[in-house]
């Protein structure tokens, strides 16, 4: 069952997001150089890490799909990529605002993390068009999984390569994530990491539950002999669970 534990998870997520925001605004100290603007860091960096983690997780789910041929794994992978794409747009926007505030430009090419992230987003932007272009649902799921695994492997490799390129020898602003942050900032950063991860998981679970409920409803309607539902389904980029027994 997908709805299980959703309510308590939602409550915990809302509470932790609220706590994080309160800590960001009222507890974390202002940065000495960037001042208030630095607080976007607590949104931007966790969002970026969770987005990339989501892409990699989607790749692992796609591996499970190709191994088990269970369409539910394809659905999980689809929802993960879909959510990470939305999170990723947030990353690009907050990153742009940060770049504008810190360096005076909306976009900087010499920041490898930013450039790698754009590449990853450009690649994943083709996920839905790829699905949409394949009519047969089984093949759509299979090809989408091949894409998800390739792209999921591309995420870490791409970051490594862009980092290794000699054009990028500028000092990096994010180097201080791993411990040079003063105490309070570090606590707030980890808090933000946790709440953003929880947010992603909760939204993922919500969408999975919604998809399963819709599939079950469709099946019940069909059992009741609802005429409308016999109409051919529209071509869609989203995987469908109807033909796969959505009892679980």
């Amino acid at each position: 069952m997908y709805g299980k534990g959703l309510r308590s998870l939602s409550v915990i997520t809302v509470a932790s997001v609220a706590l994080t925001l309160a800590a960001v605004f009222f507890w974390a100290p202002n940065d000495a150089y960037l001042g208030f603007l630095q607080k976007i860091f607590y949104v931007h960096v966790p969002l970026a890490i969770v987005t990339l983690g989501g892409f990699v997780a989607a790749g692992l789910m796609a591996i499970a799909h190709l191994r088990t041929r269970d369409p539910r794994w394809d659905m999980r992978s689809y929802v993960a990529i879909h959510l990470s794409l939305i999170f990723g747009i947030g990353v690009l926007i907050t990153g742009s605002i940060w770049a504008r505030g810190a360096w005076g430009h909306w976009w900087v090419w010499n920041e490898p993390t930013l450039v790698s992230f754009l590449l990853v987003m450009l690649l994943y932007a083709t996920y839905q068009p790829l699905r949409f272009a394949i009519e047969d649902p089984e093949r759509q799921a299979r090809y989408a999984s091949v894409f998800a695994i390739t792209a999921g492997a591309f995420v870490p490799i791409n970051f490594l390569i862009v980092r290794l390129a000699p054009a990028y020898v500028h000092p990096r602003t994010l180097d201080n994530i791993s411990g040079n942050l003063p105490g309070r900032m570090q606590v707030v950063f980890y808090l933000a990491m946790i709440s953003t991860t929880l947010l992603w998981i909760t939204l993922w679970k919500f969408e999975m539950t919604a998809k399963h409920v819709a599939a079950q409803l469709r099946q019940l309607r069909r059992l009741l002999g609802d005429e409308d539902d016999d109409a051919p389904t529209r071509r869609s980029a989203a995987p469908s669970l109807t033909h796969a027994g959505s009892a679980g």
């Binding site: 590449l119 450009l122 690649l123 394949i134």
Partner: peptide, 23 residues
């Protein structure tokens, strides 16, 4: 191989391969 049997392969091929080829 990923793009060939899709409906918009002429578009999908470059869109899929170019980001992968940037590195």
């Amino acid at each position: 191989a990923l793009a060939i049997r899709t409906q918009s392969r002429d578009l999908l091929g470059p869109m899929l391969s170019l980001p992968l080829l940037v590195p």
